[in-house]
Design a protein around this nucleic acid. Structure first.
Lengths: 155, 155
DNA sequence: ATCGAATAGTTCTATTGTAGAACTATTCGA
DNA sequence: TCGAATAGTTCTACAATAGAACTATTCGAT
């Protein structure tokens, strides 16, 4: 086995290790976060609300892009949240094709409440780690998130 | 601000940093993995297949527990995969309530193909990191996965 | 200035995953 | 032995999703 193959082999092993943890973590954490806020919203709805709360003048196209889903999915989610008085649609006066999304007063209160619950839950998990562990964990995590966000798996 | 509050404040900041990356990473990565295997199966189906491939004599109850979903959800997924000739149900002879799940020959081929694609994709992402980075990333990740799996957010 | 192309968003249909209650079949245990 | 527990399925309802067809609006090349 030459040097290149050995390096690839090690990499694949790490990837397999990562995958095993990844699937468990993702599924369970989503379920747990979902349970935490289930009386208020689904996890998908929370993420949409979070995006709108932290991005001024968000639109459906922007959301579809940010979450890598089709626009019709966003329309469905937004419509449910509008029906529940959590989100408002505002048409742009200059370009009347565009619809801006914002939280209602009720939406802002709900968001703040859910965010608090989720942060509390994750904080207790984080309490099992030293600050150094968390830091050395989050930095590559953010780097990976950035790479994946750019959707560029190639070198 | 006393020492305890300061520690909590730092922790919350880290959690907020983590959450921002977490949501983007998992959503995008799931979409990208989903796209990678979309002609063969959904990501949820892949995870079920992966579990069955790596766990001898798996059952619906075991899967429901492993993925933190209800048994009726598992029945639905399994039924679709049985219809497509990917999974087989075998009733236990001793305890006739129990149904064991296993991959068909076709299922094993499909699994191997999908696993290859996913590992290849993740490997290219991993190529952006040094071995030390990956290691210091995976270790706390595995620890977190274990904590979450035990479903114990408390200290 | 006009008209075809592009853009933003919605509607509709069909599929998948999900929960929970009611159900069948089987086994356990006091 | 019979009621309780267990394993799994069925049924119903809903959320998220994709994609095609659609409306309304704006852009841009001529």
């Amino acid at each position: 086995m030459n040097e290149m193959n050995e390096k690839n082999y090690e990499l694949r092993q790490l990837v397999e290790r990562y995958m095993a943890a990844y699937f468990v973590l993702f599924k369970k954490l989503n379920v747990q976060i979902g349970e935490m806020i289930q009386d208020e919203a689904t996890l998908d709805q929370y993420q949409i609300i979070d995006y709108i709360a932290t991005h001024e003048n968000g639109t459906s196209t922007e959301l579809a892009d940010a979450f890598s889903v089709g626009k019709s999915s966003i329309t469905a989610i937004i419509t449910r949240l509008v029906d529940r008085g959590i989100i408002e649609r505002t048409r742009d006066v200059q370009d009347r094709r565009v619809v801006y999304l914002s939280l209602t007063e009720r939406g802002r209160m709900l968001y703040s409440k859910m965010q608090g619950s989720i942060i509390d839950m994750l904080s207790t998990y984080m309490g099992h780690f030293t600050k150094e562990e968390i830091d050395s964990f989050i930095k590559p995590f953010e780097k990976l998130a950035k790479l994946v966000e750019e959707g560029n798996p190639g070198i």
